[in-house]
Structures are given as C-alpha cells and as structure tokens.
C-alpha cells in the first residue's frame, strides 16, 4: 500500500494529481473570499467604503476570473440552472444576491447611489441588511462546499474546509478594512486597538485551523496522506512553508504586532499584502495537491 506511485502517464496505475483547477480558480476563490470578508467586516465596523470595495471585488474581479476560466463563457448564464444540486450554481446565485442586496444596503451611504436607497430607519432596511450579510457569508464559504462536493479528492472531503474559507475570509476582511481605516484616519484609538486585536486573534485562529486540517487529513486515507506528503515534503513544500507559513502567518503577525506601536500606511500595506499572499497560497496549494486514488483503491495482487 505504501508503494503506490504518483503518475502522469495515462497508461500506468497510481495516484493522479488534480490538474484542471489551478491558479485562475484559486484567484476567483481568493477574490470571492476577500470581497465577502471585506463587506461583512465593513458592516460590523460601519465602514461603507470597505463594503463598496468588497462588492466591487466580487462583482468585477471574481466574476471576471470565473468567466476567463470557462471553456464556453458565452453560455455562463446556464450556471444558474441547478441550485438544487450544484454548489457552483448556488455560489453564483449567492454572488448575484450579494451584489443586489449589498448595493441596496450601501445605497444610503453614497450620494450617487441614493436613487437605490430605501432609507435606514425602516424594517425594509433591516431585512436588506440581514440578506446582504447572509449573501456575503455564502460567497465567503461556498468555495469550500464546491471543493467539498467532489468525492474524488479525499483531501477536500473535510468539514473544516468551509470553516477554513470563512476564517481566512474574515481575516482578509479585517486586514483590508484596517488599511482603509488607516487611510482615512476615521477610527478612534479604542476602535483601532480592537481591530488590531481582532487581526491577531484571527491569525492565531487560522493557524490553528490549518494545523488541525492537515493533522486530520494525514491518516484519513491513502490519497489524502499522499496529498499531505506533497504539501509538506514534496514539490509544494517550499510554497507551503514560504507562502502560507512564513509570509501568511509569521509576516502578517509581525506586521500586526508592529502596528500596535502606531498606524503606518507602509506597515498596513505590508500587512494586507502578506495576508493575501498567504491566503492565495493555502487555497492554491490545496487545489494543486489534490490527488485521485488508483481505481482499484489498492495496488496488490
């Protein structure tokens, strides 16, 4: 059982790597999580500018990345047909809902969007706020469910994956909103300290989830064990330890700790960049190290 080779050859039995979903899908996933996270955290911090950018990242960035990936982008509307069974379909519906309810929620905050405004006092606005938050939450986590719904890749069959999406998304949202707040200088000292503490808390939380996820997958089955080997000891280990651990966790944490001394735009930019690099790498690598089991599940005679 331990001698199953990782093969590229079409005609040899062994583990096969997932090759179709790579950097473009990882980028689309990243932009969705950033956008949703930015919006949700901006709601919490009452920072409409951050919310608007979150909406734009999803509406323009994520949509464009998905369209670029499709083999037949002119038929993209067909993706809406099967929300009852496909997480991709559900994801696109959640993106549309997010854009619609997000715009309605932000309308009162921007004069050029006032024609969409329903005011901020009525029950209708409260409903819109809840729906926008729910849609943002779905945009943040559905990638995890998309990966999760493929039984073929054992590495992705973990309930921790959508949770990983959620917490990485929230961390990205906090980092970028912190940058916007630093840029505009609108926050109070107490408010700023709270956001910085949140940032450090989420870095620690994400690290714990990544470690738990990897540990839970080591002995899940032979394919997930091979995936973890590729990630930790194989050709992707440099990207994992360099991109995810060093840049994504250590550097982001260092920038956050330096920020405790005072806000600096350079530090904030470094924090956002390090966080997003780590964020991209973890999901890109999870896509790349997904492997398929040999069809008989074993190589014995």
């Amino acid at each position: 059982m331990n001698n199953i080779p990782l093969v590229n050859d079409e005609f040899v039995m062994g583990f096969r790597k997932q090759t179709e979903w790579a950097w473009l899908i990882a980028t689309a996933f990243l932009l969705g999580k950033i956008g949703g996270g930015m919006f949700l955290v901006a709601m919490f911090l009452d920072n409409p500018l951050g919310g608007l950018w979150g909406l734009l990242v999803v509406a323009v960035g994520k949509s464009a990345a998905h369209l670029m990936y499709l083999g037949r982008p002119e038929r993209f509307w067909r993706v809406l047909m099967r929300p009852h069974s496909s997480w991709i379909s559900r994801g696109i519906w959640s993106m549309i809902s997010f854009i619609v309810f997000g715009l309605l929620y932000l309308a009162p905050s921007f004069s050029w969007l006032s024609w969409l405004s329903v005011g901020t006092d009525g029950v209708l606005f409260q409903i819109i706020m809840v729906l926008a938050a729910l849609a943002a939450l779905l945009v943040m986590v559905y990638d995890g469910f998309v990966m999760n719904s493929s039984p073929a890749i054992s590495l992705w069959n973990s309930a921790l994956l959508p949770i990983l999406c959620l917490f990485y998304s929230l961390l990205a949202g906090i980092s970028i909103n912190l940058y916007f707040i630093g840029l505009t200088g609108k926050a109070t000292t107490t408010g700023l300290a709270m956001i910085k503490n949140l940032e450090i808390g989420f870095i620690a939380l994400n690290f714990i989830i990544v470690v738990t996820y990897i540990l839970s997958m080591v002995n899940a089955n032979v394919a997930s064990k091979e995936s973890i080997r590729l990630l930790l000891k194989g050709p992707y280990s440099i990207a994992f330890f360099g991109g995810v651990i060093l840049v994504g966790f250590v550097l982001t944490l260092m920038f956050s700790l330096f920020l405790m001394g005072g806000i600096s735009l350079g530090l904030l930019l470094g924090l956002v960049a390090a966080d997003l690099i780590g964020h991209f790498f973890i999901f890109f690598l999870l896509l790349r190290v997904g492997v398929y089991c040999p069809i008989l599940g074993k190589l014995s005679y």
Binding site: W21, R75, F76, R78, V79, M81, S86, V146, S150
Partner: peptide
C-alpha cells in the same frame, strides 16, 4: 456537481455530456 445539467444519465444508466449545454467549468472533471 454539474451546474447546467449538461452532464446527465439516460434512463438506461448511460452517463452523457450534452455539449450544447456544457459551459466548460470542469466541475464534473474534478
């Protein structure tokens, strides 16, 4: 996982892809 219904099973169990409906998202492939 097919978001369009392009990938489908006939009544006799044969699984086919309707290439007029396929958008090339490769969810089925994965």
């Amino acid at each position: 996982v097919c978001p369009t219904g392009a990938s489908h099973s006939r009544e006799d169990g044969i699984v086919l892809v309707d290439d007029n409906q396929c958008i090339g998202c490769r969810a089925c492939y994965v």
